[in-house]
């Protein structure tokens, strides 16, 4: 399968339902095309000059086909709903009960970058040690991550192929996704909802650190920021400081450059 390797704990559900559904669809497709090709071969005019007006036994065959289609449908419905229940529908409590305490990050999508707000060492938002990352989402391996996402301008969609995460990010609403990364490394984030001319450049990374590295990274963040107080959570709708499209009609807007607008440049 051309699909990216899965580094999440829940990705299994997507991959297996995708595989099973694809295989069954492929099977149905191949069977239908085999029959269609047979029809073309056996019932061409030169081979079968007199058509059969009434086919016998087709009602039974149709019923059999219908029943197999319904079984096929039930397989799809059961698998997808089950998988949906195990991924999107999971409540935060049940997740924390299973995986331990979550790392909560507030995500804001903007034309054309992502901002990630951390609660800092005290794990509470709205305090002095909050900080904002303008480049990458840094998370800890094997730890539950919950993202509360909203948008500062238009609809974006947060897609991390390796983590099997995709969800729309909407102004005026908060959407939630979760994942537990199983492997350290850097994984790209893509925007999957057309959001303007820089849409295709709205890239970011999820950096998954080993627990030790993550702790020291968090400590270093807290130190730097305590010298430079003030909450850095980027503003809500209306106070956007992003470069407006109208300023750069030539389309030369670089995603990297405007990351530094509206978020702290000191994140790295």
């Amino acid at each position: 399968m051309p699909i990216m390797p899965d580094i999440s704990t829940h990705g299994w559900w997507l991959d297996w339902s995708l595989l099973i559904i694809s295989m069954v669809t492929l099977l149905v497709g191949i069977l239908s095309f085999a029959l269609i090709i047979l029809a073309l071969i056996y019932f061409r005019q030169s081979k079968n000059p007199t058509p059969t007006r009434h086919l016998s036994g087709w009602i039974t065959r149709l019923i059999i086909l219908d029943i197999s289609m319904i079984i096929f449908d039930i397989i799809i419905a059961v698998f997808s709903t089950w998988g949906w229940a195990e991924t999107i529908l999971k409540s935060e409590e049940s997740l924390e009960a299973k995986h331990g305490e979550a790392l909560t990050v507030n995500v804001t999508g903007r034309q054309f970058f992502w901002a990630f707000d951390y609660a800092g060492g005290d794990k509470a938002f709205g305090t002095a040690d909050d900080f904002t990352l303008g480049n990458d989402l840094v998370v800890e391996k094997d730890r539950l991550v919950v993202l509360n996402m909203t948008s500062g301008d238009t609809i974006h969609s947060f897609f991390v192929p390796h983590l099997r995460v995709k969800y729309d990010v909407i102004p005026g609403r908060t959407t939630r996704v979760w994942f537990v990364p199983k492997k350290a490394g850097e994984y790209p984030v893509l925007c999957t909802e057309l959001c303007g001319l820089g849409h295709y450049k709205m890239l970011s990374n999820v950096r998954v650190l080993e627990p030790d590295d993550f702790d020291s990274w968090l400590d270093s963040r807290t130190v730097t920021l305590s010298e430079n107080p003030g909450p850095l959570r980027s503003g809500g709708p209306g106070q956007s400081q992003t470069v407006h499209v109208s300023d750069s009609k030539d389309g030369s807007l670089g995603a990297r450059a405007d990351r530094n607008v509206g978020v702290t440049p000191r994140s790295q």
Binding site: I3, L14, S17, T25, D73, I76, A77, S80
Partner: peptide, 11 residues
């Protein structure tokens, strides 16, 4: 049909 399956549609 593949797209109609919620969980497969995520990807």
């Amino acid at each position: 049909l593949q797209l109609g399956a919620t969980v497969a549609d995520i990807q």
